[in-house]
Design a protein around this nucleic acid. Structure first.
Lengths: 335, 335
DNA sequence: GTAATAGTGTCTTTCAGACAGTATGAC
DNA sequence: GTCATACTGTCTGAAAGACACTATTAC
């Protein structure tokens, strides 16, 4: 290895950059992710992505906004760069001699919108792809029935004792099987663990085991698969978003201009994957100054009408890290 | 604009990817950043960076580790991807017809090490490049003497009232001039604001005003400049690291295997840019279970000998977000 | 002794978590 | 009336911030 700076133009020849977007919204108390059926008729849907055009795009983010708005007629509000994915063979086409595909992943938030049906875009429920992440109705059954036994077996099947300990530590950290509290931000850790253990479809597909897609959805796999490494990108987005709502008021990017406190709580719960304590939630958003009353009353709620609130923009000047810092309950149901 | 997925190989032709590293250590209570003098004899130092080799490197991070270890003989412990930088003209060579340079930036932490002198690498004090970020001895004088007046003038010079309000809001958020508390994580916000206002050398250089570098270090510019956009990458690294030490035990990546509590405190202070309350710091690291006593006593301390501690690895299983969550004092000196 | 750092104890305030109870609508 | 949701008040314990004090070294 004698590579030096001066040689880099030659080594970079087989690389292409694209920009992929995890576009998230919340409708009817469910978090949704925008998915497209790729042009080449791949069997599984994927995140929208497009080329980075170095001549037309002044910045990476500008490039992302441009082709997303063009393809989906969606105007992106909040956009944040997530991570750059460049693992070998992240796109199976690379095996057939294609260039190394590097993708800069973005997280974007949009308000509930009627999606133009022109393209092949659909809003997918993100827990369809991560059923083990939704604890709103208690512990997901798939963990007890499928994931935990498989992980235990994986730990026990390690050949050496230090190896077994490392595996156990990883399992305990990711899935809290050792009695620790569930950490709703470790979405990527959990996905990567399931990938390594072979519990997600993409793992066997990437290994070349079953290119005909037959195994997708069988009981040996958990959650629905996306094309290429897009489920990994989505996992990154989920983890980042779950972390971010705790210290930045990004949740309001997903809300209508006015909303009831319960609507706000349900949106946070949908993203966080757990229940919040209602009274404390109300106190928190009021006390932190995140919202202010509009004086208007909501329509039908199923009970007593609720007051409508709006986001208080001034909060970003008053508090160093304004967000919804309420503890997420993942074991029992809360009112 | 009719770009579609299928055309991306053609649009990506003029792009090269490199990997840049903000390699941080703390020695003698000062945070340091590894800098190299580029091979093409550019007048300003920069972060080490190297090409991404799509044929040789299985992952981006593996590529980074490989050439860093090769070039600097440093073994990187903690490595974290930061951000991908792709703004047009981020490398001035692009103006002369060069390809669009996209750089994936990494943050790496290494223990205090005797750096092999083989290359042209040096450890630079990172506050030399960000003098307004060091509040350990009280408010930096450069803010009162230079930055605050210039920012005020910039706010007042806006042509429309809404524009003036937007500028004031940005200044208040970044530099807390409106009475808010200083947020030590907003390193990038502050650098980008200074860049836009023209208070850092790179701004005038990038605009083509003074390619002969003569203005570097004059009183109209704040802090020392780095080559290309490397100061922006460093700002991203500083902000991320300051945030991270609060909820992950990354500080121990920079410490010797055993250390006194004051050494640990000084390291945190060096990175955070402020003072910590000594007694509370001790209580925190003990109470959170971050450290455990070794039973051994340190040597020369200048006073009573101190007990040596070590990092308690088990803490990552016990607490959801173990880190040094002590409030950083930026106004007055603390014991 | 002084100077400097190490380490303990405790008071106060803030705030998160939990629970009890009242208010107002639909039916 | 019941049921469902909206909203208020209060208790408790954890933890952060601040302060006072003692301990052990070098000089």
């Amino acid at each position: 290895m004698t590579t030096r700076h001066s040689e880099r133009t030659s080594t970079a020849s087989g690389v292409v950059i694209d920009l992929s977007a995890a576009i998230v919204t919340v409708t009817d108390e469910e978090p949704k992710i925008l998915l497209v059926r790729p042009a080449d008729m791949a069997p599984r849907p994927g995140l929208p992505f497009g080329p980075f055009d170095p001549t037309g795009h002044r910045t990476l983010e500008e490039g992302l906004r441009a082709w997303v708005e063009e393809q989906t007629a969606l105007h992106l509000g909040y956009v944040e760069q997530l991570y750059t994915f460049g693992d070998r063979f992240r796109d199976p086409k690379e095996r057939a001699g294609g260039p190394r595909p590097v993708s800069v992943g973005y997280l974007a938030l949009v308000r509930q919108t009627a999606l133009k049906d022109a393209g092949d875009s659909i809003w997918g429920d993100w827990y369809r792809y991560f059923p083990w992440e939704d604890w709103r109705s208690g512990a997901p059954t798939i963990i007890d029935s499928l994931i935990a036994p498989a992980l235990t077996e994986w730990v026990d099947s390690a050949t050496s004792k230090p190896d077994r300990n490392r595996r156990r530590e990883r399992v305990n950290l990711a899935f809290s099987l050792g009695g620790a509290a569930w950490d709703n931000e470790r979405v990527l850790d959990r996905y990567e663990l399931l990938y390594e253990v072979g519990l997600v479809f993409e793992a066997s597909f990437d290994a070349g085991a079953d290119p005909s897609d037959k195994l997708a959805g069988t009981q040996t796999h958990t959650g629905a698969a996306l094309t290429k490494d897009h489920r990994r990108i989505l996992a990154t987005a989920m983890g980042r978003l779950r972390a971010k709502i705790k210290y930045r008021p990004v949740i309001f990017e997903l809300m209508a201009p006015t909303f009831t406190l319960l609507q706000l709580q349900r949106a946070v719960e949908a993203l966080s994957g757990g229940r919040l304590h209602k009274q404390n939630f109300r106190r928190l958003v009021a006390h932190e100054g995140l919202v202010e009353p509009t004086g208007h009353i909501s329509g039908q709620t199923g009970g007593r009408p609720a007051e409508l609130f709006r986001f208080r923009r001034e909060v970003v000047h008053e508090r160093p890290a304004p967000g919804v810092r309420v503890a997420v309950q993942v074991s029992k149901r809360a009112g």
